[in-house]
């Protein structure tokens, strides 16, 4: 970049200035290039250091089932006990929980058991049956399907079947069992889900545990236009997805 070697040689002072300019220009190139190269080296070294010695990485949300406010430790404890004991969570052959099982595994009073389900009022529904019957009418099927397909992020679907006080305990126990099965049968036919057994928890309580009070008539039912009393509300199966991680 120097002008040395120029021909013809310009006058002395000007030629000297030109050569100096050349040297300064060349120095400028070297300086800028050195600066740029050192910067590149430093940026790469710094990134390499961070790569090899990473600091704490920012936490990333992980996809999971839903977990809502009503999933209190007590609620989850009871659900977990019931789920495990009723053969749902593991690949056991046994399905469902009869009243004695629920009493044993839940270790909870009737009213406390019902209280646990109170937050599910809007999420779930009460499927009503005729006296002594386990057949689902059209309204029951529609409501059951509506609730099933409103799964959102839930993992487990609970069916809690009951019978009213009418009749003896053994008969009601069997009747509530049939009602639970009736719900399960219909779900299986509409869900087209090979893993439905791992999702649905069946409980049948007969008339011996956690009977519903008349207050539950205000919950969504499959027969909203029919008279509802304490007898009618217990001829039922409460169904709901549960938005808790267990």
């Amino acid at each position: 970049m120097t002008a040395a070697g120029a021909q013809p040689t310009p006058p002395g002072p000007a030629g000297g200035m030109s050569a100096l300019a050349g040297w300064l220009g060349a120095s400028g190139v070297v300086a800028l290039l050195t600066l740029a190269t050192i910067s590149v080296r430093m940026w790469v070294s710094s990134a390499t250091d961070r790569l090899e010695h990473p600091g704490e990485k920012p936490k990333v949300a992980i996809a999971d089932q839903a977990e809502v406010a009503y999933c209190t430790p007590r609620f989850k404890e009871v659900l977990e006990r019931v789920l495990h004991s009723c053969g749902l969570a593991q690949d056991e052959t046994r399905r469902g929980c009869k009243p004695a099982d629920v009493k044993t595994f839940a270790s909870i009073s009737d009213s406390d058991f019902n209280e646990l389900f109170t937050p599910l009022k809007d999420r779930g529904a009460v499927i009503l049956f005729d006296e002594g019957m386990q057949d689902l009418d059209d309204g029951a099927k529609k409501l059951l399907e509506d609730k099933w397909f409103e799964r959102k992020g839930a993992r487990y679907f609970f069916v809690v079947a009951r019978a009213s006080k009418t009749g003896n305990q053994a008969k009601n126990n069997a009747l509530s069992h049939r009602r639970a099965n009736s719900v399960m049968y219909h779900l299986t036919s509409v869900a087209n889900d090979p893993e439905i057994d791992k999702k649905v928890g069946l409980l049948w309580l007969g008339n011996e545990f956690a009977q519903l009070s008349k207050d539950y008539c205000s919950w969504p039912t499959s027969r909203p236009n029919e008279k509802c009393d304490e007898e009618a509300i217990n001829r039922s199966a409460f169904v709901s997805w549960v938005d808790c991680r267990l």
């Binding site: 970049m1 050349g22 400028g28 300086a31 800028l32």
Partner: peptide
């Protein structure tokens, strides 16, 4: 940048 500096310094003496 360096070459421009050279021309800036050389002015009318730039070849």
């Amino acid at each position: 940048g360096g070459f421009a500096l050279y021309l800036w310094l050389s002015r009318e003496r730039a070849p």
